[in-house]
Amino acid sequence: MMSKTFNRFFRYITFKQFTIFNLLSIILIFIIGVGISIGSFEFSVLKYFNNSLTTLEEEVLMNIRFPRVILAAVVGAALSMSGACLQGLFRNPLADPGLIGVSAGAALGAAFSIAMSAEFFPDFLLTPYLLPFSAILGSAFVISILFIITRGFGFEGMTYMLLAGIAINAFAGVGIGILTYISDDAELRGLTFWTMGSFGGVTWTLIIPAIIIILSTIIWTLRISRKLDLLQLGESEAYRLGVDIKKLRFDIIMSSAIIVGISVSLTGMIGFVGLVVPHLVRLFGGVNHHYLLPCSALTGAILMVSSDLLSRILIQPAELPVGLITSAIGSPFFLWLIFRMRNK
């Protein structure tokens, strides 16, 4: 299964695209290296290799900085990858993970646990797992609603699905609005910072399950690249070429829901990465999904690790919400994209 996937991967990409893939991998490794060497607690990471780190430095490196950088990379990859998949599936350049309402559902779940945990949940539930867990429940809830109203994602026409996503987004917005209205000062600040995204407060125990699930879902998703290529010919053409559209739709939406739900649950709302990165990757090397999906994942990881690095060091000792940085990079790009589309 695995080797088959990789064989296909090499059959369908050009030399240039392969070079870009390698280049991106090298940049990612480099930027992760930079990410773990810089932080407000200053020491030389190179000391790790001759074992001369003090215990405090080792603690900071291994248990605070390293998990944070790794989580940023994985979340960046997840958001961009699901953005690329959804753009391919909807054949719409403006699709992104937020569009089908999954992140809004996760946000609603998280907001509920921030604002209501003191009132509603029994003591034994008040663990660090509560927030991610309720966010995942929120996104699962949204997905099941989508599943029911589109009759197993099989309903004719993608417009229907997109409109359902918009309605769900609005509904989740109302829920978050109500929770914001009734929450007290401390909860309000927690909510505000959470909706702007942050990789802070992560621990290994919290992120290891997330990393395993996200990475395996990403690898699993790579296998549908060819089907996504065929789908670009139109749904009926793809159907005649042997693509099971209904199953493809199910696979993509479910895998996006899983990785986006988990990402949002751990990091809050991080905008524009899922939308912008696939476009960037297409500009560099082409539109075939065997190239697009893995390179989007790599570019997303690079972008996210650098954004997180900026968020940590720009205004030390305070930290800038990472969602602000990605949106600051993303929104001008988005405008430029719309402008370019109009001029064509």
């Binding site: 932080g39 407000s40 607690f41 200053e42 900071v60 900085r65 000792p317 305070a318 930290e319």
Partner: peptide, 19 residues
Amino acid sequence: IFDSFKGWKAVTAEAIIEM
């Protein structure tokens, strides 16, 4: 220890350990 900025802000874990 965090009098270098105004208002309620999120701070990094590293900054707390350093301070």
